[in-house]
Design a protein around this nucleic acid. Sequence first.
DNA 1: GCTGTTGAGTTGAGTGTTCAACCATAGGAG
DNA 2: CTCCTATGGTTGAACACTCAACTCAACAGC
Lengths: 178, 178
Amino acid sequence: MAHTRWLDDEEQRTWRAFLTAQRLLFERVERQLQNEARMPHGYYEILVRLSEAPDRTLRMSRLADTSLSSRSRLSHAVARLEEAGWVERTACETDRRGAWARLTDAGLAALQAAAPGHVETVRSLLFDALTPAQAAALRDVSETLVAHLTDRPVWPAGDDTGCPTPTQAEEEACPEAG
Amino acid sequence: MAHTRWLDDEEQRTWRAFLTAQRLLFERVERQLQNEARMPHGYYEILVRLSEAPDRTLRMSRLADTSLSSRSRLSHAVARLEEAGWVERTACETDRRGAWARLTDAGLAALQAAAPGHVETVRSLLFDALTPAQAAALRDVSETLVAHLTDRPVWPAGDDTGCPTPTQAEEEACPEAG
DNA sequence: GCTGTTGAGTTGAGTGTTCAACCATAGGAG
DNA sequence: CTCCTATGGTTGAACACTCAACTCAACAGC
């Protein structure tokens, strides 16, 4: 990049406001889930994705993709979730490198117990503050960003989890708030 | 809360898109700073706030507030930054409980070295993807959320860092992207 | 001058995330 | 079949963040 394209005043304020809002919001979401459901939001998301999968079962790599998790993170996380008895791993017959992760009944119960508090939090912290038009704008901006951030490489070296556009719900699933 | 106000379909999609966009964006911002400047974004923010303060110096608690950091986090962070020689702590004369944090010359240099890459990242990942109208909408939504999240208690117990509305720039400062 | 409370800041244990290295199997190319 | 690379997944060390406990000083009220 030749010489820096600095942010103008307007952009600066936008970025800082976004940063602040985002921090404050997710900090509280995180805290609420931690306090009331004893799990970080990342784990909640994993449980949600599993609950939406056919047979409440997914391959680890697929689960990593849909829950926006690196393989390593997922591996560690599932290990914990397994200790808690919420998920179980079984070997994959057809591809012996692979592993299935399955949401147990206890896991589903934990998710269903966590959901109301979480959804209420999201609603009260986010949607209650926004007009319908603002919410629509937020969706528009977010979807634009997701599209922007999922195809191009942008940062040449190393790269990361490929992050394909997340496929959506498929089955019973706990009515949740991702 | 009586019985859960679930998210409707529209809200669900908005929330998931927001979540995804946010994750993808900050993951990359984080990675870029980590790779190119050897510091997490939280540390960058601390350096920025200090660079904007008169005399590049702030009380720890004030620094915690303006950088949206808990006291504990800041304490750990400044300890690291001090090891790196980027910040130095000195005792406060008038209030002997207190401490000043000051950005050293080396710290300012590190910040100035980090800024272009960071700003370029923010621009290319965020602003380059948005129309001016979308950027304006993002700012509007963000500011609404910040207002919403900074006054009310919302979550009764414990509470957290008071998080006053962040005061804005004051001095030389590195032209940055908070 | 005491005593209790609040505020400033630090500390350490516990937990989650990242990164790089690693093992094992799958799937070609020769 | 044999190598060779790519893929699926795990592991451990390093590091950041959280929470709760703690220290020390300021500032009441009496």
